[in-house]
Design a protein around this nucleic acid. Structure first.
Length: 446
DNA sequence: TTTTGAGTTGTTCGA
DNA sequence: GTCGAACAACTCAAA
């Protein structure tokens, strides 16, 4: 009788879960479990939105497991200690998990692997996060790409892995002592904004409705934040309540069925490739998590004025499009991609504040906050990253607003006081700050 | 090794 | 108002 553990982390689903499928195939009994990691919970990058989304996703996962005749074992503490205890309690001889490519996770998992080696427990780590795992898209000399366009060209030549069907039943060992799912308050957070529907069903509902109407006009409408023209799948991809492969498959089928919309849908697929690209960059160049991809830019002399930073966070800069964007973030836990670029450019190039401060604020406020994607986006905007925006390309908040919110619908929604005396005066002069930013970059470029 | 072409998402200036 | 060039030469990828 073979008894295994399956460790859920960022893959909170039963559909297309390659690690879980493998565990079920190779075992008579599988115990599914999740561990609240104190290390992660106390990170300053964690905010109430993500913890709340996690809790709801776990609740839903637990119910779904119950329907399959199993259950979700929950523990809290240091993963390696908890897992060692569970291995002992169950006498399981194998453990499965899907690979997580973040630096902290890689280190933690390597330690767990070593611990299992000592205990004589077999470990199976299964690639899952990317559609094309790092190593599948490399230059001809075997090294990783650092430029997106050639990366995406090779990416598209690869075959996309098949989807793993949802298990029909899961046989688990008799119930172990589980802690009840903690409440948000118990984890030290309070949620002050609406919580989007979490869990696998919500993710599939979102995908289906977006594929039915939305994806066929992605390219034309994706840059207009006043329209609800994007999929909103990002938190689900973040927590794995849906797999990127599943999203890709649905988009690829829609593309086949609707050839006139192929170009529109290709841009949507391209965003999935960007997701793989930044995960791969983080995997091969983990220093990006702490500093610039190009070390020369670690010498930039940011002003880091705290009053300006607070005004940016609060959406009180006096620049309507920036304030609307920040208020969208603060009140919904989500920000449209076009707006993310605008506020990132504004923080770095107008306020001359280190991109890492903005990166952290985003992580605290976003439901979809993901290290690789968020870091990649911020480094792009700051001009410090791979494929960096040329440093002289500085967004003008006014022309961006004119181009992408021409009727001022978004601004009106989030900054209703726009035409009254109550509205803040601009906290900086864009023209002057632009020149200052150019000078700041010129200094480190010699 | 050397050479060549290209690079997510822009802005400003001057004709 | 519109349009093309400059921004500043840099780095990467591939031949």
């Amino acid at each position: 009788m073979i008894r295994s553990l399956f460790w859920f982390r960022r893959d909170l689903r039963l559909n297309d879960n390659p690690g879980l499928s493998l565990a079920l195939k190779e075992s008579d009994e599988v115990l599914p479990l999740f561990i609240f990691d104190r290390e992660i919970l106390k990170s300053p990058d964690i905010g109430a939105p993500r913890v709340a989304f996690l809790l709801t996703s776990l609740e839903s996962l637990g119910k779904n497991l119950t329907h399959l005749g199993s259950y979700l074992l929950i523990r809290q503490g240091k993963p390696i200690e908890q897992l060692a205890a569970i291995l002992q309690e169950t006498k399981a001889t194998k453990i499965y998990w899907n690979t997580d490519l973040e630096p902290y996770a890689l280190k933690r998992d390597a330690e767990m692997q070593a611990c299992c080696n000592d205990l004589g427990v077999q470990v199976h780590q299964v690639p899952d996060q990317c559609i094309q795992a790092p190593g599948h898209v490399l230059k001809s000399d075997g090294t990783p790409y650092t430029v997106f366009t050639p990366y995406s060209k090779i990416w598209k030549q690869q075959t996309v892995p098949i989807l793993h069907p949802r298990p029909r039943a899961i046989k688990s060992p008799s119930e172990l002592k589980s802690i009840p799912l903690p409440s948000l308050g118990e984890l030290g957070h309070t949620l002050k904004i609406p919580l989007p529907a979490a869990g696998e069903k919500a993710a599939h509902d979102l995908l289906n409705s977006y594929i039915q109407s939305g994806v066929e006009s992605y390219q034309s409408r994706r840059n207009l934040p006043a329209l609800d023209a994007t999929s909103r799948l990002s938190p689900h991809l973040r927590f794995g309540t849906i797999s990127a492969r599943t999203v890709h498959r649905a988009a690829a089928l829609a593309r086949e069925k609707n050839p006139p919309a192929a170009k529109e849908i290709d841009v949507f697929i391209s965003e999935l490739i960007w997701r793989d690209f930044y995960k791969t960059i983080l995997f091969y160049f983990p220093h990006v998590a702490l500093g610039s991809f190009r070390p020369i830019y670690d010498d930039l002399e940011w002003e880091n004025n705290d009053r300006l930073f607070q005004a940016w966070c609060a959406g009180q800069t006096g620049f309507p499009i920036v304030d609307a964007a920040m208020r969208q973030l603060n009140t919904t836990g989500w920000m449209h991609n076009r707006l993310r670029m605008i506020v990132a450019s504004f923080l770095t190039k107008d306020l001359l504040i280190d991109w890492r401060q903005g990166e952290r604020y985003f992580m605290q406020q976003l439901y979809d906050g993901d290290l690789a994607a968020n870091n990649g986006g911020w480094q792009w905007a700051a001009g410090t990253g791979t494929d960096a925006q040329p440093y002289f390309r500085i967004f003008n908040p006014e022309s961006q607003a004119k181009k992408f919110d021409p009727e001022g619908i978004l601004i009106e929604k989030y900054v209703p006081e726009i035409n009254s005396l109550r509205y803040a005066a601009p906290i900086v002069d864009h023209g002057q700050r632009r020149l200052k930013a150019l000078a700041m970059f010129k200094k480190v470029r010699g």
